[in-house]
């Protein structure tokens, strides 16, 4: 088995008495593509918020590559190699698609190059290649707020990839993407993850996508891990079929 890249131990968090994580422990192994499934409101996005520092746990610990990241800010955790794509795309809506990408690449390179333009030729080329990867090359000069929802989602993922993360957290990457584009997006994403050696965790409601692409599935229900394992095993679990797959 590959080494664990992210270790979550005995994590507790609650909002107004509702437990979003109730003593959760889990590992994400290097190179795997881990799917998190579960009913709406079960705390899946909270798990991403916890791992990226947006929400601080009441107790418990999170380690990245053996170093504690519990309670650190999203900025610091990002700089340690964790990138995130959001359920609702988080873009710079007044800027062009290309500028969104180049700003992400510049952030990775170090933003403090005050007198060098954002649009350096090498950076522009790299941004265009990433846009090509997710199928947005033709949209590169559009202002990002004018993109259809599915393309905004793709751009959000491309921005996260531009950070060259060790661990990528994706919140429902295929929601808002048309059925026709869904699998081509996943193929492109998987290719990018493999070629760049990126470990990924993705929250997903589309069970076809989960069954086809996930190396391992983690079933989240009411702030606890109900089951985990290979998709074939998990989707045979009666509790999962009854409580999650039926409502996911």
């Amino acid at each position: 088995m590959s080494a664990s890249i992210l270790q979550v131990r005995d994590l507790h968090v609650e909002f107004n008495g509702v437990k979003a994580a109730d003593g959760v422990s889990l590992d994400i192994n290097e190179g795997e593509f881990l799917a998190v499934i579960g009913p709406n409101g079960s705390g899946k996005t909270t798990l991403l918020n916890l791992c990226t520092g947006y929400v601080r746990p009441k107790s418990g610990s999170i380690h990245l590559d053996g170093r504690a990241i519990t309670g650190l800010s999203p900025r610091v955790i990002t700089r340690r190699g964790v990138a995130r794509a959001f359920q609702i795309p988080q873009l710079f809506s007044d800027q062009s698609v290309l500028d969104n990408m180049m700003l992400a690449l510049a952030a990775k390179d170090g933003l403090w190059t005050m007198l060098r333009p954002l649009a350096l030729p090498a950076r522009r080329e790299e941004a265009t290649a990433l846009l090509d990867l997710v199928g947005l090359r033709d949209d590169k000069n559009r202002v990002s707020r004018t993109l259809p929802e599915g393309h905004r989602k793709l751009l959000d993922i491309a921005v996260a990839l531009a950070l060259k993360p060790r661990l990528l957290l994706l919140d429902e990457p295929t929601s808002g993407v048309s059925t026709l584009e869904r699998f081509s997006l996943m193929e492109a994403l998987m290719s990018a993850l493999r070629t760049r050696n990126i470990t990924a965790l993705f929250v997903e409601h589309d069970m076809d996508v989960v069954a086809r692409y996930a190396d391992r599935v983690l079933v989240w229900n009411a702030g606890t891990v109900m089951a985990q394992g290979h998709p074939d095993e998990v989707f045979k679990d009666e509790r999962v079929l009854k409580n999650v797959v039926g409502v996911a």
Partner: peptide
């Protein structure tokens, strides 16, 4: 520069 674009980005996100 990236710093200037980041400044505009503060406004939007």
């Amino acid at each position: 520069s990236p710093l200037g674009h980041a400044l505009s980005a503060v406004h939007t996100n």
